[in-house]
């Protein structure tokens, strides 16, 4: 019992550690950039998938379904292989950098954004979809109109994507390396601290992650409730 009580006491003490603040900032930046970039690509693709009749739609759908359940460590491994100095993209020198972490989280977030965007569009009433066709808009305008119609769902997709990547550890540890002050984020910090039985700081980082996660999920349910 003492172990747990001590850890909790230490956890709150560790919250004011400037290093933790640095880690929190990097966490938010990395996952935020990953979520934003996955939105930039994923929302249009998701809209096309949700509305579309185009070649390769079935394949894309399967790819998205598989991607949504992709194990983060596998994404990390694949990316590490690509970025490894003697690998195909080695000349970019991106291994163990925040950029590599953003890339990994982008890959994890993208299928979620595409899949959720497509499904909120598909959940539009049949009358809306039929009317959308009847308006004879060009592809871009049609997607835009559909997306505006389901915007809470699109924001929800963004938040869900952020929520997934911010709490993910496998991929960022593999491609980021948990380097202090450079690629150390909350999840990799928790792994590190708990490996060393420094349960207080581990729990402190965990509390911050939990708060972020709570904010994400509360706003997600608020947004989904909005209309």
């Amino acid at each position: 019992m003492d172990l747990i009580l001590d850890a909790i006491a230490d956890a709150f003490a560790s919250l004011s550690d400037p290093e933790l603040i640095e880690v929190v900032a990097l966490t938010l930046v990395v996952s935020g950039l990953a979520a934003i970039s996955s939105l930039a690509l994923g929302v249009p693709v998701g809209a096309a998938l949700g509305l579309g009749r185009f070649r390769g739609r079935g394949t894309l759908r399967v790819a998205v379904d598989v991607g949504m359940g992709l194990p983060p460590v596998l994404v990390g491994l694949a990316l590490l292989l690509l970025l490894w100095r003697s690998g195909p993209l080695g000349s970019l020198r991106l291994t163990f950098t925040p950029t590599a972490m953003v890339m990994a989280q982008f890959l994890l977030a993208l299928p979620i954004v595409v899949g959720l965007t497509a499904s909120v569009i598909e959940s539009l009433p049949a009358a809306a979809l039929e009317q959308l066709e009847a308006l004879k808009l060009n592809r871009v305008d049609r997607s835009r109109l559909a997306l505006v119609e389901v915007w809470p769902g699109v924001v929800g997709a963004a938040v869900a994507a952020f929520g997934r990547v911010v709490s993910e550890v496998g991929a960022v540890l593999i491609v980021g390396g948990n380097i202090s002050g450079e690629t150390r984020v909350l999840t990799t910090l928790i792994v590190q601290e708990s490996r060393q039985a420094r349960f207080g700081p581990a729990l402190g980082a965990g509390i911050v992650l939990l708060v972020i996660s709570l904010i994400v999920n509360v706003s997600l349910s608020r947004i989904r409730g909005a209309r």
Binding site: T95, G177, I179, S180, Q196
Partner: peptide, 13 residues
């Protein structure tokens, strides 16, 4: 650079 992680990952970095 400090990894806070095992030897293998540290060598990779």
């Amino acid at each position: 650079l400090s990894t806070g992680q095992g030897m293998g990952l540290t060598l990779q970095v």
